[in-house]
């Protein structure tokens, strides 16, 4: 962990009409770390990701990626710089087979420059590269799974497909919007090592999550949000023991459960 900030978010504010969804949220993500963002429903986590990645315009504030100002840039330009995201509601191309889903990001300028996740600056045949990426992310190559229509894949594979779409761009940072949600325990169990491997490959991860137990296991730092504001930030232990966080999640069984677990 080199400790240099790769992503700096400064005082980001977003108001929908009169409703303030994000109120002056600031944080930094260091290169190579996994940062978790947690918070109750409606605390503005997904809005924050949308603002950072340019999917919605922020009302005010600044986002720096590797020192360059990317606030309110078009989404495709931000993705082209290596800042990618997954969607909470999965958005695969349902009418295409899984491996063809990757042909599309591999067609993008960034993938052509970088050659995909493992590519050394040169992009091979898109179908082959797509299947390679799928294999690394947990689609069994010799099974039918990579050739199945995305519409017939189960949630676990779709979540992986979301990640694979980011990986096709050879990203520097991935903002994951709830990759664990909707997965069974065994699926999560196989997802966690995958996340750890991504970190070892030098990809920075920002993970918005509700599954606190798994998140606390992988995350280096955690930020807590509530009502569109940043509540606190710290290591997993600091967050778990914080009174403020308990208050925000008051009555939430999950936190209780995590507390006792810890």
């Amino acid at each position: 962990m080199s400790g240099t900030p790769i992503l700096q978010v400064k005082e980001v504010t977003k108001a929908f009409g009169g409703i303030v969804a994000l109120n002056r949220v600031s944080f930094e993500v260091n290169e190579g770390e996994i940062m978790g963002i947690i918070g109750p429903n409606g605390s503005g986590k997904t809005t924050l990701i949308n603002c950072i990645t340019g999917f919605i315009k922020m009302s005010s504030g600044k986002v720096l990626f590797k020192g360059r100002d990317i606030s309110n840039k078009p989404a495709h330009k931000i993705a082209d710089m290596g800042l990618t995201r997954t969607f909470q509601i999965m958005r695969p191309y349902y009418s295409l087979p899984a491996y063809k889903n990757l042909v599309i990001p591999l067609f993008s300028p960034r993938a052509r420059r970088t050659g995909g996740w493992r590519g050394g600056g040169k992009l091979g045949d898109r179908d082959t590269v797509g299947i390679d990426i799928l294999e690394e992310i947990g689609f069994e190559r010799d099974s039918f799974v990579p050739y199945k229509m995305a519409s017939s894949l189960p949630t676990g594979y779709l979540k992986r497909l979301e990640l694979a779409r980011c990986l096709a761009l050879k990203p520097e940072i991935i903002l994951c919007d709830e990759v664990f949600s909707g997965l069974s325990m065994s699926e999560i169990a196989s997802m966690v090592p995958l996340i750890e491997r991504l970190q070892m490959d030098g990809i920075t991860l920002v993970m918005v999550e509700h599954r606190l137990r798994e998140l606390f296991r992988v995350a280096n730092r955690v930020m807590v949000m509530n009502f569109g504001e940043k509540l606190m930030e710290g290591t997993a232990e600091e967050v778990m023991t914080s009174e403020k966080v308990k208050e925000a999640y008051f009555g939430s069984e999950e936190v209780e459960e995590v507390m006792t677990y810890a």
């Binding site: 495709h76 042909v103 993008s108």
Partner: peptide, 20 residues
């Protein structure tokens, strides 16, 4: 394929670094 992807799901195309 990319054009069909734009029809299917333009947000994902944007997230893939391509201008729809």
């Amino acid at each position: 394929l990319v054009l069909r992807a734009v029809k299917d799901n333009d947000q994902a195309v944007r997230a893939s670094g391509m201008s729809i």
